[in-house]
Design a protein around this nucleic acid. Structure first.
Lengths: 336, 336
DNA sequence: TTTTAGCACTCCTTTTCTGTAGGTGCTGAA
DNA sequence: TTCAGCACCTACAGAAAAGGAGTGCTAAAA
C-alpha cells in the first residue's frame, strides 16, 4: 500500500530490495551483486545498476566504497510497510505456545510471561513485558493487618484477582481504635472503585469522612494515601533472553554490549518502551527510544483488566515477519 | 592467624605480597620489580629474587615468561586470611548507608535492597540479594478471596508483615459451601504455624479434618496444598549494577561478557549463590560456583524473620577489604 | 650470606607492510 | 537495456619489524 510521500519504485527494484533484505536478515553480511544475479535472472552488472538506483533512493547503504549493500533504516521501513507479507505461524511455533495458553492454572500474567520466554528462546531476541493493572480492575477487598504498634500491611485485591500489598509505617503513637475505624471506613467506601481512581477517590470522598470519625486522621489518611497511591503506580517489568540479542553478530563489540546491558538495567529506559498505539508496531533504529542499533517490535495488551506492553528487541536486521506474527498470536490467543 | 597447612613466609615476603596485591587491585596491571623497589627500600634485583620465591610458593603468577607478577588464587586467599586487616568504613560510605537505614517507612527488604544498590554503585561491583521468608515467620492471617467460579486468590500474611499471594484454579465445579468451609477450616487451623512448616502441617493436620467436613475435599485440598507449598519455596532474587562488573578491565572480551550476562540471567546459577555458612565469606575464583574469573563475597542475614543472602560479585582483583566491611556493616546495622 | 649493578634474553604490543578476496563503477559493444 | 570486461577500492588476515617492560643470572660489593 503506497501512502503519499512513499518512494515509488519499479517492481523489479522491489523484488531486488526484498531479496537483499531477506538475505541480509539471514546472513548479517553485506549482499553483493553476484550472489543475487542468478536469482534475478540477469547479469551482476544489471543488478549493480539497480542497486545503485536503490541506493540513490536511500533504501540501501554501503559499509565502504566497494562493499556489498546493506539495507538502510529507510529500506527496512519500506520493507515493513510495502513488501513484507504476514506469514502464518509455523505449526511448531504454535504448538509450543499452545501448551502454555491451555494451562488453566496459570494467571494471565503468568501466561504472558511464559509465552514471552518461549518466543525469546525461539527467535533469539530479547523479550520485555511491562505489566500494570488497569482501569478495568475494581477494588473488591481491602485488608489491613496490624503487625505491631507502628506497622500495618495493606492488601488490595481486585475483582480480576490482582493482588498488591504495601507496608505502612505510622509515625508516632496512634490509637488502635483510630486504626480500626479508618480501616472500616476505607473498606466500606472504597470497594468497587476502579483501581486507577483510588487516589482521587481517597482524596475527595474518603478524606472528609475520615476527618469526622477519626481523631488522628491526618497521620492515618496520609499513610493510607501514600500506600494506595503506590498501588496504582506499580509497574511490573520482566525480561527474558537478555543475552540472546547480544549473541547477534552486530553486537560483537564489548562496548556496545555494555551499553545495551546497562540500558536493560535502567528501569526508566525499559519502562519507556511502553506502547501507546494500537496493534503491533515496529520501531526501527532511531524510531525507537531504546537504542539506534536495535529494532523494537511491540504491542499493547488489554486482557480482562490486565494491561501492559509486550515487546521484542533485536538487531535492526531482525525477522520482522516472524516476530510480528508471534506477538499478534499471543495477544489474540490469550483472549480465549 | 596461621592455621595448620598455611604457607610460612617471612615478614618481608608478606610486605611484598601485600604491596603487589594492593597495587594489582588498583591498576589491574602486572606488577614489576622496579615499581616496588622504592617502597621496599632495596634494589629491583632483590625484589625480583623475593618475587621468585613467592612464585615458588604458589602465591604469585606471571602472565608470560618475562612479565610482571600478578597474584594467584592462592595468593589472594593468603592475603584475605593472613594479611588483610579490616578497615573501618569511611565516613562518606557510612553516611550514604545511614540515610537508608534511618528511613522508618521502609520494610527490611527495602532497606536491604536499597543498601545493596548503593554499595553496588560505590564499589562498581554487582550486588545480588536472595531473599526468602523464614522459620521465624508465623502465619498470622490467611485470606481467600473468590474471583469467579473456578478462581480464588489465596493470601498469607505473616506476623512479620510478609505477604505472599497465589491464584488458585479449581478443576471443575466446586460448591461454594465447600469452598467457604475449607477456607474457614484452614484459617482456624493454620494460624500460628511457622511458614516453612505449612506444607507438612497441611498434610498431617489439616487434610484429615477437611476430608471429614468437606465433600469435594480432594480437589480443594490439592489446590490449596499446591498454593501453600509454593509460598514456602518462593525466592526473591534481586540484582543491582549488573553492568558495573563488566566495566572492569578483565572483562574486556565480548565472549566473557556474554558468559557473565548469561549467568546473571540464569536463575538457578544465581540462586546457587545462597550462603550457608556464618559471617561474611569470600569465595575466590574456583572457590565459588558462579565463575572462575570472579570473586563472590557474601553473607547470610536473618533479621526479624527476614532471611536471605546478600552478595557482591566482582573480579578476583576486587577490593576485599572494603566489600567485606560494607557487607558486615549492612547486616549489623539493619538489626537496629 | 645478602644485596645489587649489569647484561642478555623473552615476550607482548603496536605499527607497518603485504597479498588476497570480494566488491564496485564505468564504458563500449551487442 | 543489458552485459562483458576492466580498472579500481577497501576490509581483512598474516608476516615482519620496532619498541618497551620486565625477567633471570652472574659476578662483584657489602
Amino acid at each position: 500500500m503506497l501512502k503519499e510521500g512513499d518512494t515509488l519504485i519499479t517492481s523489479r527494484q522491489k523484488d531486488l530490495l526484498k531479496m537483499i533484505i531477506e538475505e541480509y536478515i539471514k546472513t548479517a553480511k553485506p549482499v553483493g551483486s553476484k550472489s543475487i544475479c542468478e536469482r534475478m535472472d540477469c547479469s551482476s552488472a544489471t543488478v549493480r545498476a539497480e542497486m545503485s538506483n536503490l541506493e540513490d533512493l536511500g533504501l540501501l547503504e554501503k559499509t565502504h566504497i566497494s562493499s556489498g549493500r546493506i539495507p538502510s533504516e529507510k529500506g527496512y521501513r519500506y520493507y515493513v510497510d510495502n513488501i513484507m507479507e504476514p506469514k502464518k505461524l509455523s505449526g511448531e511455533d504454535m504448538l509450543k505456545l499452545q501448551c502454555i495458553m491451555d494451562n488453566k492454572s496459570l494467571t494471565i500474567s503468568d501466561v504472558i510471561e511464559k509465552s514471552m520466554e518461549i518466543i525469546a528462546e525461539m527467535t533469539n531476541y530479547t523479550a520485555i513485558i511491562l505489566g500494570k493493572s488497569s482501569k478495568d480492575n475494581l477494588v473488591s477487598k481491602v485488608e489491613v493487618i496490624p503487625i505491631d504498634e507502628n506497622n500495618l500491611v495493606a492488601i488490595v485485591v481486585t475483582n480480576k484477582g490482582h493482588v498488591e500489598h504495601k507496608n505502612i509505617y505510622l509515625e508516632g503513637h496512634v490509637s488502635s481504635r483510630d486504626i480500626s475505624k479508618t480501616i472500616e471506613l476505607i473498606n466500606k467506601l472504597i470497594v468497587g472503585t476502579p483501581i486507577d481512581e483510588v487516589s482521587s477517590f481517597l482524596e475527595f470522598e474518603v478524606k472528609p469522612i475520615i476527618s469526622n470519625y477519626v481523631e488522628q486522621h491526618e497521620i492515618l489518611y496520609n499513610a493510607f494515601y501514600n500506600a494506595f497511591n503506590e498501588f496504582t503506580n506499580i509497574n511490573h517489568v520482566n525480561m527474558a533472553g537478555r543475552v540472546n540479542m547480544l549473541n547477534q553478530p552486530e553486537f560483537s563489540d564489548a562496548d556496545k554490549i555494555r551499553e545495551i546491558v546497562s540500558k536493560f538495567d535502567d528501569k526508566e529506559i525499559v519502562n519507556a518502551i511502553k506502547e501507546e498505539g494500537n496493534g503491533v508496531n515496529i520501531y526501527i533504529g532511531s524510531e525507537n527510544n531504546f537504542d539506534d542499533d536495535v529494532t523494537v517490535i511491540k504491542t499493547k495488551y488489554n486482557i480482562n483488566g490486565e494491561v501492559g506492553t509486550i515487546a521484542m528487541i533485536g538487531p535492526k536486521r531482525m525477522d520482522y515477519d516472524r516476530v510480528t506474527t508471534l506477538l499478534n498470536y499471543i495477544v489474540e490467543n490469550i483472549n480465549k
